[in-house]
């Protein structure tokens, strides 16, 4: 065991060094640097209260949580049947579906977001179709509001949800489903009483990972959202780049990081294969 651990550490060393150099050290430096602006602890706490409970930041935190939750729920509702089909598909169909899900990964988020803007804009494809068919009288406002943000983010995050669910569904022993059927269960009962419980750990993992990624989103809400759809990552960027209030940015970063790490701890607990059964 010790030898194997040593070997694993050696193999992981390059990525650990990279992570330390590009992420851990800068963020530590950023956080501690910002703290040094305060002479005493009480001053720090006072400022933190002022920043985090100010209207803008508070509203943005609520927005972030709300958008994250809606996007995660949508991704789950769309992703669950998709993953199911994927887990049952064989051969060419499997490759085709997988490609459709994974291919967007290879394109940058910005490009994909702009593509959505082309589709969703006032004169975009969707509005033209709806107008052309006479379904709506006026173009729908699909962009620069909450709806636009949710559509864009759901699309970008869907593959994470689908692939996580797929892994859980692939691990389901199909003999158990057949057994349930043989014992008199209807297809709906097999699904609800056997398949869903057996994939529950995948649902929890998929929800957590999607939510974690969603609350840190920056590009999509910035491009597709309206003025009231400010998410916390956008606010951090604004404090750093425009108002240059680094201590405020640092405090928001700490909140975001803490939430993320907490959720990640829950995630890694659930993602452990040994805990899969229950």
């Amino acid at each position: 065991m010790p030898i194997r651990t040593q070997g694993a550490l050696l193999l992981l060393l390059p990525s650990l060094l990279l992570l330390a150099a590009l992420f851990l050290i800068p963020i530590a430096w950023f956080l501690f640097g910002s703290m040094q602006e305060f002479a005493t602890w009480s001053e720090l706490v006072e400022e933190a209260e002022a920043v985090l409970f100010s209207g803008g930041v508070g509203r943005s935190l609520v927005n972030t949580g709300w958008i994250g939750a809606v996007v995660t729920l949508l991704a789950l509702v769309i992703g669950y049947p998709m993953s199911y089909v994927l887990s049952r598909a064989r051969g060419l169909a499997f490759t085709a579906i997988l490609l459709c899900i994974v291919l967007p990964y290879f394109t940058s988020t910005i490009v994909r977001t702009y593509a959505w803007m082309v589709l969703l804009g006032r004169n975009g494809l969707i509005n033209q179709i709806l107008l052309g068919l006479g379904i709506v009288e006026e173009p729908l406002q699909l962009l620069y509001n909450r709806l636009g943000v949710v559509i864009g983010m759901t699309y970008v995050l869907l593959p994470y949800m689908v692939l996580t669910l797929y892994a859980a569904m692939k691990a389901v022993d199909h003999r158990l489903l057949q057994a349930a059927e043989g014992m008199g269960a209807t297809p709906a009962q097999v699904f609800r009483r056997v398949f869903v419980p057996l994939t529950m750990h995948g649902v929890v993992a998929g929800v957590l990972i999607t939510f974690i990624l969603a609350i840190g989103f920056f590009v999509t809400p910035a491009l597709m959202g309206g003025p009231s759809d400010v998410m916390i990552a956008m606010l951090i960027e604004r404090e750093v780049e425009i108002t240059q209030n680094w201590p405020a940015a640092a405090m928001m970063t700490v909140v975001l990081l803490a939430v993320t790490l907490t959720l990640y701890a829950v995630y890694s607990r659930f993602a452990e294969p040994g805990e899969a059964a229950r």
Binding site: D173, A179, G182, G184, A185, V194, L198
Partner: peptide, 20 residues
Amino acid sequence: VPPRGRGLGMVFQNYAIFPH
């Protein structure tokens, strides 16, 4: 008739006990 309409008892290879 599908399996659920046959009213049979079944013991499966590898038992097929539901882990949840």
